[in-house]
Design a protein around this nucleic acid. Sequence first.
DNA 1: AGGCTAACCGGAGGTTCCTCCGTATCATTC
DNA 2: GAATGATACGGAGGAACCTCCGGTTAGCCT
Lengths: 187, 187
Amino acid sequence: MASERPLRADARRNRERLLSVAVQALSREGAAVSLEAIARQAGVGIGTLYRHFPTREALIDAAYQGELDRLCDRVEDLLAAAPAQRALRAWMSHFVDYMGTKRGMGDALRALIASGGDPFARSRDRLTGAVATLLGAGRADGTLRADVAPDDVLVSLSGVSLATAERRDRDQVDRLLDLLMDGLRPR
Amino acid sequence: MASERPLRADARRNRERLLSVAVQALSREGAAVSLEAIARQAGVGIGTLYRHFPTREALIDAAYQGELDRLCDRVEDLLAAAPAQRALRAWMSHFVDYMGTKRGMGDALRALIASGGDPFARSRDRLTGAVATLLGAGRADGTLRADVAPDDVLVSLSGVSLATAERRDRDQVDRLLDLLMDGLRPR
DNA sequence: AGGCTAACCGGAGGTTCCTCCGTATCATTC
DNA sequence: GAATGATACGGAGGAACCTCCGGTTAGCCT
């Protein structure tokens, strides 16, 4: 694999312009933006947009990658401030919040979490890594089970996000997360 | 509410024809069927289809309502054959199986589960009822917690379905359901 | 029967989606 | 600095989405 030949100059220019327009458009109009509008605004043809970002999810994913990194970075702070169990619970909240805020991240998320495919692998790995760190700390301090795979937790978490996407019922989300946590504690 | 004036003769005819075509088309081509194709095949205009089924989900929901009823009906048998905890776990498997088989039920499901709105209320209530029965039995025989709302379990379950929709990983689904069950047992 | 009206029908039309491929542009080599 | 692949660009085109509203009927009433 790999062999990422460095993009041609014009290609990189276009890619960047598309991304910056997309970020604005997404936070302004939500996930259902017209891709054609984005292309137009970026001054490129629709074909160019699709070449750089083969699916709507790919575009959204790329647009939010920065913030998603920040989400993963919080793990350290959380672990410094509380025992693993509490840190994990807090991070879950942040995760769901984030997915909720960025309207339409939801759909991208499903593709992302489900992807065995390469395109989103980076984001996926970051998320799995974050969960793994939290679970690891939990195993160390004994507040979390040791026999659960990070990936399973991540997928469960995405399930909660997806299932609660439309009726934004904060209380229910909390209850679902608590339920999940109950399953993650040693008996 | 209510006031369901009985559909006019032609309307009912069309509705039924649409439904029967939809059932075939859905099991043949999955959720992404072209609605225009269905309308064409049923010999009605696209407008007629949209009047009867305002969204794709509404159509899918209606198409599968029969089978979904059967799913809910299984609860009794399961409860007769095993303690509540095991019955619930088995029903969960059936639920996820069902959602997986009927490709694209997934998307309908999200709308359905999330709907505070009337249109899908019937299916929704049936499902919630099924879970409530199982939980009730669990409370009675002490194998399940008494402080969890049926609705929360249903939404969690739909979360598992949604999150695992594309990579059909049977083992992972089982693990996620086990995790959920762990949260539902009394400590 | 004949007439009336609420209810229903159908499809044109404006958008968006995504693909495909001829043309234009870059970058490398001589 | 010209030639020549390799890459990237752009938009036409066909399919599908969903809405809207003028025209058509079924069912009721006299």
